[in-house]
Amino acid sequence: MKGFILLFLGIRHHHAAFGGDHYIQYMYGCSWDDETGEADGFRQLGYDGEDFLVYDMKRFTWIAPKQQAVFTQHKWNSDQAGLVFWKNYISQTCIDWLKKYLDYGKSTLMRTVSPSVSLILKTPSSLVTCHATGFYPSGVMVFWQKDGQEQHEDVEHGETLPNNDGTFQKSTHLTVTPEEWKNNKYQCVVQVTGIKEDFIMVLTESEIKTNWVRVITDDPAHNIVPHIGVVLAVLAIICCCWVCHWKKKQSEKCELTGTTLERVS
């Protein structure tokens, strides 16, 4: 894990002799790599967006990139107490504070959350989506493989998006026909920064989430379901027609009987 501290200060001042408002920028910081133990630091002064004085960390002395800064360079380099102070501060004190900040924030900075991976087929088409969600940190790679080799053609990568709980999500889409992925081994691989384990989902019928059943199977047992529904619907219509016809006949019979009785009376 690498750490870095940066302090930036900008000051605007009015200098009539140099044509109005001017800006002074002051910046210093340090960095530390806990794996190699390498530490570094810097300190520099800018004037109107350009380097004015730069502190050389190897020789611990000031360097003047511009001629206008030479006078200040000699003055600050003659201040031995100031040079010793900044040498100790950048190479020791700043690093100590950086280590403390990293230790305080370790629970957040080094937190990792494994993703949940799904294969989604929303419509009866050849577009299969590999969706990874709930992972942390945001650094992630989601890609498709065919027979162990990364697939680049017919692949579309989505953006990494934030979730409401602070985790992230990302989708990658693959255009492939059912016949092709049944005859080859397609799999989605998810790699999250900070997690050594790869998360792999093999493209099979049992892993796909979809509301459209017929697109993922040729089994007649699945395809017979809609046919049964059609037959039942036709039978229901026939029954309704027969009932309506029977009621109509009964109504005509009642009217005829009533008319006959009236004539007899």
Rank of each mutant, 00 (worst) to 15 (best):
N183Q: 13
Y104R: 07
F42D: 00
F42E: 00
D48W: 13
L119K: 12
D103A: 14
E255I: 11
Q151R: 13
E180G: 02
K209P: 00
T129G: 09
D103W: 12
K146N: 06
E35M: 08
H14K: 04
T129Q: 15
T160V: 15
E252C: 08
E197P: 03
P115R: 03
S107Q: 12
K87G: 02
I5S: 10
G20T: 06
H13C: 07
Y101S: 06
E156F: 04
L53Q: 02
S251K: 15
L98K: 06
E262R: 09
W246K: 15
G19W: 14
A17G: 06
M201P: 00
C239H: 05
L161K: 06
W32N: 07
I228S: 03
S206T: 08
C94T: 00
V128S: 06
E38V: 03
P65K: 14
L256K: 05
F18G: 08
D218C: 04
G49A: 05
Q149C: 14
L119N: 08
G29R: 09
H13V: 09
A16W: 14
H245W: 13
L45K: 12
T123Y: 11
M57N: 03
L9G: 03
L121G: 07
S118P: 00
D56A: 09
G37C: 06
G139D: 03
I200A: 05
E205G: 07
P178D: 02
N211M: 07
E156Y: 05
K247M: 02
C240F: 10
S78G: 15
K87N: 09
E205T: 08
T167P: 02
E180T: 10
Y136L: 12
N163V: 07
Y26S: 10
Q191E: 15
